[in-house]
């Protein structure tokens, strides 16, 4: 079994391990059933947050992200991760430093202070792209791993921004109406549901959630209105920060704007975990701000 497993250094980031540990647990367990072994990336830190941190000084952002990458280079292992914000930092800095000698030299000057060197020897992947990639896993294999199909549920996809955009610096193609995430949702037996302006931002990024929460939540609220319009039973995403914005955001929206949606928000790995037979307890769904019970009842 272990011989067939592909191994990756699992970059956790902050929000998944420290706010939604179910995502971390689910990622490890569900991936194992798909032939992907996630190994701890010891000593990793914040990616660091591209909006809040990069906004202040991109040079520090490059250097701290590079530090995380070098930890995996030392493991001689590609990185995989489950957060779009982390993807922007880790994938993009890896990409930039591989192609920009001047920036790489600058970064290595700093890293030398901590006896590290960015070599550009590994690649970075979002776990969801490994799932979709036929060479690694593929939609069929995901479907085959399902033991409890999410039949009868309507699930909407939120791709998130930093995974796909900017298009010209990524490899996912269409950023206006992609459909590959929906394929992965339907592989779990659920119906994927289309909604107005599905590619709009969750509203949290760029430090806006911290800078002007009301503004940030108003963007989220627009998405929630659009999701309510089509009767989605749950929203799924591949970014714990988007998840935080939609999940806790609903509580904040109720407080600030007096509107209540009660839309369960689940990371794709949490959904996959349910479909592979994991219990809500094994996914710590009770940590979610929005009660997932109505959704869980539908798949019972």
């Amino acid at each position: 079994m272990a011989g067939n497993m592909r191994q990756y250094a699992f970059f956790l980031g902050c929000i998944a391990p420290n706010r939604y540990p179910g995502c971390e647990a689910a990622a490890i367990k569900t991936s194992a059933k798909l032939g992907i072994e996630l190994l701890p990336l010891k000593g990793a830190g914040c990616c660091p947050a591209p909006g809040a941190f990069g906004a202040i000084d991109l040079k520090v952002w490059y250097a701290l992200a590079a530090r995380n990458i070098v930890l995996a280079e030392e493991m001689k292992m590609d990185i995989t991760l489950i957060c779009n914000g982390c993807y922007k930092s880790i994938w993009e800095v890896n990409h930039i430093l591989k192609h920009n000698d001047e920036l790489r030299d600058g970064v290595n000057e700093v890293l030398a202070e901590v006896d590290m060197e960015f070599k550009g020897s590994i690649d970075v992947w979002h776990l969801i792209e490994l799932y979709y990639d036929k060479k690694v896993c593929g939609v069929e294999k995901v479907r085959d791993s399902v033991v409890r199909p999410l039949t009868g549920t309507k699930i909407a996809a939120h791709y998130g921004c930093h995974l796909l955009k900017p298009k010209k610096e990524r490899h996912f193609g269409d950023t206006d109406n992609p459909m590959w995430f929906e394929e992965l949702i339907e592989a779990l037996g659920a119906e994927s549901v289309q909604y107005r302006n599905k590619m709009q931002c969750c509203g949290a990024g760029g430090g806006v959630r911290g800078y002007d929460l009301t503004h940030s939540l108003d963007i989220t609220n627009e998405k929630l209105i659009n999701l309510e319009e089509v009767g989605a039973d749950a929203l799924t995403e591949v970014c714990p920060f988007c998840q935080l914005q939609y999940d806790r955001g609903q509580v904040e929206i109720e407080e600030k704007f007096g509107k209540k949606y009660g839309l369960p928000v689940l990371h794709y790995n949490e959904l996959l975990g349910l479909a592979q037979g994991m219990t809500p307890q094994e996914l710590a769904l009770d940590l979610h701000a929005i009660d997932c019970t109505p959704f869980l009842e539908k798949i019972r």
């Binding site: 591209p50 909006g51 921004c161 930093h162 900017p166 949290a204 806006v208």
Partner: peptide, 12 residues
């Protein structure tokens, strides 16, 4: 200046 969510739609 601080209201950009860095969604990169404009960049696309």
């Amino acid at each position: 200046l601080w209201l950009c969510t860095t969604c990169y739609s404009c960049t696309d």
